[in-house]
Design a protein around this nucleic acid. Sequence first.
DNA 1: TTTCATATATCATTTATCCAGATATCGGCC
DNA 2: GGCCGATATCTGGATAAATGATATATGAAA
Lengths: 293, 293
Amino acid sequence: MDAADLRIFEAVARLGGMNRAAAELNTVQSNVTARVRLLEDELGTPLFHRHSRGVSLTPAGQRLLPYAERMAQLLADAKRAATDDGAPRGPLVIGSLETTAALRLSPLLSRYAAAWPEVDLVLRTGTTGELVEHVAARRLEGALVCGPIDHPELQAEVMFREELVLATARGVRSLDELIGKGELKIVVLRAGCSYRQRLEDILARRGAVGARLLEFGTIEAILGCVAAGLGATLLPRALITASRYTERIAVHALPVSEAHVETLFIRRRDSYASSALSAFLEHVRPPVLQAAE
Amino acid sequence: MDAADLRIFEAVARLGGMNRAAAELNTVQSNVTARVRLLEDELGTPLFHRHSRGVSLTPAGQRLLPYAERMAQLLADAKRAATDDGAPRGPLVIGSLETTAALRLSPLLSRYAAAWPEVDLVLRTGTTGELVEHVAARRLEGALVCGPIDHPELQAEVMFREELVLATARGVRSLDELIGKGELKIVVLRAGCSYRQRLEDILARRGAVGARLLEFGTIEAILGCVAAGLGATLLPRALITASRYTERIAVHALPVSEAHVETLFIRRRDSYASSALSAFLEHVRPPVLQAAE
DNA sequence: TTTCATATATCATTTATCCAGATATCGGCC
DNA sequence: GGCCGATATCTGGATAAATGATATATGAAA
């Protein structure tokens, strides 16, 4: 049994047929059949049920499949690890919350890109849930998300600590005034945003339920609307302070227990940390820990 | 790059030479040289320094080596997983503390062996530290050790809860009497035994330090000596109750915080749980949880 | 310095393996 | 029955791997 055999096996299993697998692997069907047969002979057990519309996995095949996938991943990692000579280079695909990107990342990223011009840096934004999913599936090497995260395959490291505040238009004096008025509207970045649930919890704890939800695609839009008196939102304090709407937005501090939020960098435990990633973490890490104290 | 290449690479790295690797792999040196060279060409970086007494790893080779080892392990696991049809069979090598083996395992093991006669069961005893080490290095599929365990590569599951008690000869009324006399001797199974540190902590908290340490290879010997008034020991209550020295040993209960100890079953997170192991856990698990309540 | 023991590198040759294409076979479906 | 979409089997040729003989480098001992 060899990695090549498992690659073929995996393709057949995934595509449900030897012909389709052959096409994907740029070879012919007879070849695929023969390799699968050899693998079955070696293991002493059939891996596929053959039927007229293709093949399906036997129980043995089902047990083998995850190993085939891990094998492919391991080979790719091995190649990267050996090739990587310590000088950051090549692709680095990471994720981030939009708020983190806006608030913290821009200066760091530009410094990083300048320091390591040979790295092709890609930053994708999404919600914490989406990013966790992408990192777990290895579509991202890592991501900055909103803590806490508890996922057995991921490791997390605190990168930033933010104070979340409730933002409303200038006229509003306090949270309670806002809630008292009824017809509360809250503005969030998008569905699944980690701040949304938190904001709803905060309001619920103060007796406000069933607030109307508004979604905007950019932070600018949210702040603009909040400034215009459309509703309230929950964002890191620094983000509001730095915006051009500061003058027209009232910031309502929350008790520490609710205000504190940690931005974590997550990555797979079992995956190779490329030099590009290590260098990225070096850039992001130290200034932050100072800032947090 | 393929698993076969990495196998050759690993052998060369481990044995420090292509000739030695060739001998181990049952092939010829020229072949090994060629394969290594191909691998180096493919990766675009040398993996070995060649010198007159063999070869040594370059940095790239050092980075690659762990992947080669993981690859070999993964292939072996894959084979086992596919071959394993759910009926427990073949070798099952597990570890246990000697006390756990004596106290809990004997009836379970005999039932297990009777239920699955095709399993070749091997039980090795050792200290918690040794067993953790062996499981991490995959020399054991799993082990019953004394909790708590915090090791990133291992997962743990509570199997038994024991009450530890201090055992002395009949004449001794209380812990304090024992400590007060000075010249305290404590008897442990062997160096590194997890109960030893715990016993020393317990005594230290009561003002007894510098107790003399005696080591005996078997639990029988320990109990015999304790009964004879040689010293004190720390063991699960049930173990003393069940022994033939019960009459001559005084049992001193400890406060709950010190007495409670959990026996965990540990195994590697990333390794395949064979049917033989799953069946073993089925045998060990359920009666225990009842007993603990 | 010469020689020797012990390494790796290279090369021609044999051997085994893999691949491609043609063909046979099987199982539904109209 | 005949067709369609599958997998199974077979064979020649291309490709890659293993082998054995030989060349080369290096340090240690005579």
